[in-house]
């Protein structure tokens, strides 16, 4: 049985259909890649236990459907997210252009208290492809991430497992910080994570 009141980090992965959201999640959680992923309907989630600076946390990753109309189902589960990952496909300009819409959509639906400081992480996926197929250059993307509020950005390949752990490490740290901030601000959601102020996981009651 899991230890109660452990820190739960909720991470939402958004981005256009086919950019590789499922693959990223699978690669990070299970260390696998497959050509056989099906289109995601609604949402799937996986969890992974992580240790961040001696602190054990459980990351709950939500993989979503990319088609626009599925956003209307997102209202409920965006809430309480600690970090939002925005994914585009380096071979698909449109998926890159849509990054800011995904960000806005998230902020509206998640009802984030402090939108300015909410942690987003941008991921440009499929960097394993042939150079000639890459449409969104790293330079362009980095500039864009700066303009969007100096957001962290990673170039990854879920297929070749490039940069996945690095990206998710930043995601986890950002999520943890967000979680702690919310705690500090007296968030109503007290079902989880009651003793973040103490370093170890002992009971604070």
């Amino acid at each position: 049985m899991a230890i109660k009141k452990k820190t739960l980090l909720k991470v939402i992965i958004l981005g256009d259909s086919g950019v590789g959201k499922t693959s990223l999640m699978q690669q990070f959680v299970n260390g696998k890649f497959s050509h056989q992923y099906k289109a995601t309907i609604g949402a799937d989630f996986l969890t992974k236990e992580l240790t961040i600076d001696d602190k054990t946390v459980t990351m709950q990753i939500w993989d979503t459907a990319g088609q626009e109309r599925f956003q209307s189902l997102g209202v409920a589960f965006y809430r309480g997210a600690d970090c939002c990952v925005l994914v585009y496909d380096v071979t698909n300009q449109k998926s890159f252009d849509n990054i800011s819409s995904w960000k806005d959509e998230f902020l509206i639906q998640a009802n984030v208290k402090d939108p300015e400081n909410f942690p987003f992480v941008i991921i440009g996926n499929k960097v394993d492809v042939d150079e000639s197929k890459k449409i969104v250059t790293q330079k362009k993307a980095q500039q864009y991430a700066v303009n969007l509020g100096n957001l962290p950005i990673f170039q990854t390949s879920a297929k070749e497992a490039i940069n996945i752990d690095q990206a998710f490490d930043v995601i986890a740290r950002n999520a943890l910080q967000q979680e702690e901030n919310e705690e500090f601000n007296g968030d109503f959601d007290d079902a989880i994570n009651i003793n973040l102020e103490s370093e170890n996981q002992g009971c604070a009651c």
Partner: peptide, 20 residues
Amino acid sequence: RRIPPVMLTTSSWFMSVFIG
């Protein structure tokens, strides 16, 4: 009005008529 998040999983039961 605000469908619980867990129902996101069951929504695919209906949308895909249980395929998958």
